[in-house]
Structures are given as structure tokens and as C-alpha cells.
């Protein structure tokens, strides 16, 4: 199998197809953007037709949706949750707050750049992003998966020290086990 590049290619194509048509998002409403997730998942927009559905625990999930601003306290949980997810895993930053802090740009308790702390694959702008925008964000993620560039875990692994340093800069009490890759 390893040597046979053609069959490997076919397997890769199928894998990529399966991965992009089965995106299980982690049920974690980190911020106020979570209010548009029900709309996205239910009858009018129905993300399930794209294979997007909810997963209850990080072990089962593929996509971590950061729905809006992240406070320092939540960031700590998000990192833990992200590290508990199984690769390949994707992160979607949702709303202006995740991109640059949004209207909380001078708040002492929210982070301003999500991609400093965990690798982000897709940002969806807006406050809030409409469900259509969320769906197109998923579409973008699917394109990235197809192109093979949605490699968050790899980036995280390679730049692990940098990410960890950033994380530890704002999380003062690091009381959970370090991640062994």
C-alpha cells in the first residue's frame, strides 16, 4: 500500500472527501456567536445536509467553532478541549471578536487574536456572521480540506513551543498536564 502510489492516491481522495463531508462540530458555545449556531443547524439553513452535525465531546469532534470573543478563562478551556480533539481537526474563528477582538479591542479580559493561541483554519467575519456566512465558512473549510491545506494539528505540532509560550503568557496558572505529541 505504501509503495503503490496510485492506490494511496485513491485512498487519499476518498479520505479527503469523507473528511470534508462529515464535519462534526464540538458543542461549545464559547461566546455570543453561539446564538446563530442553532439557526444554522436547524430547519431553514440545515447544515446537516453538508454533513455538519454536533458532537458532544472533544474526542468525537472534528471542528472547533470559536463563536466570538474568548475570555482568558475560556481560552484555557478551549486549549484543553482543542488538545483533546483527535486529528485531523479544524478550528473556525467566528465573528470579528475572534479575528481582532472586535468591539472588545481594549478589554482586559478578552484575547484579540485567536490564531496566536491555536491554529485557525477559517475565519468568518461579521458580528454576528449570518448563517449563510457560517455555511460559506464551512464551504471554505471544505475547500481547504480538499486542497490539503487545513493542517492545523501539523502547524500546532511544528510550532508547538511558540503556541505554548503565547498561551502561557496570558494563562497564569497552568494547572493541567502538558500535551505530549
Amino acid at each position: 500500500m505504501q509503495n503503490d502510489s496510485r492506490s494511496q492516491k485513491i485512498v487519499d481522495i476518498i479520505q479527503a472527501y469523507a473528511r470534508r463531508h462529515s464535519l462534526w462540530i464540538l458543542a461549545y458555545g464559547t461566546g455570543c456567536g453561539a446564538i446563530e449556531i442553532p439557526s444554522t443547524m436547524t430547519s431553514r439553513y440545515d447544515a446537516e445536509r453538508l454533513g455538519v452535525r454536533g458532537a458532544a465531546t472533544p474526542r468525537q469532534a472534528d471542528v472547533l467553532l470559536i463563536t466570538g470573543y474568548l475570555t482568558v478563562k475560556t481560552l484555557k478551556r478551549v486549549i484543553r478541549v482543542y488538545e483533546q480533539m483527535q486529528s485531523p481537526k479544524y478550528v473556525i474563528g467566528f465573528g470579528s471578536c475572534a479575528i481582532n477582538g472586535g468591539m472588545y479591542w481594549d478589554s482586559y479580559n478578552t484575547i484579540k487574536m485567536l490564531d496566536q493561541y491555536i491554529p485557525v483554519d477559517v475565519y468568518i467575519s461579521g458580528c454576528m456572521p449570518r448563517p449563510e456566512a457560517v455555511l460559506s465558512g464551512f464551504g471554505k473549510l471544505q475547500d481547504l480540506i480538499k486542497a490539503g491545506v487545513a493542517d492545523g494539528p501539523k502547524r500546532y505540532e511544528e510550532n508547538f513551543d511558540w503556541y505554548r509560550a503565547n498561551q502561557k503568557k496570558i494563562i497564569k496558572n497552568w494547572n493541567f498536564a502538558d500535551y505530549n505529541w
Binding site: G31, T74, S107, Y108, N109
Partner: peptide
């Protein structure tokens, strides 16, 4: 609680 503390009231000062 505290996962969502954005300090609105603080930001309103400015």
C-alpha cells in the same frame, strides 16, 4: 461563571 466576562461596564468609560 466568568467565562464570558468582557467588562462592558469598564469599556463604557472610554
Amino acid at each position: 461563571v466568568g467565562y464570558l466576562h468582557r467588562a462592558f461596564e469598564k469599556l463604557a468609560e472610554k
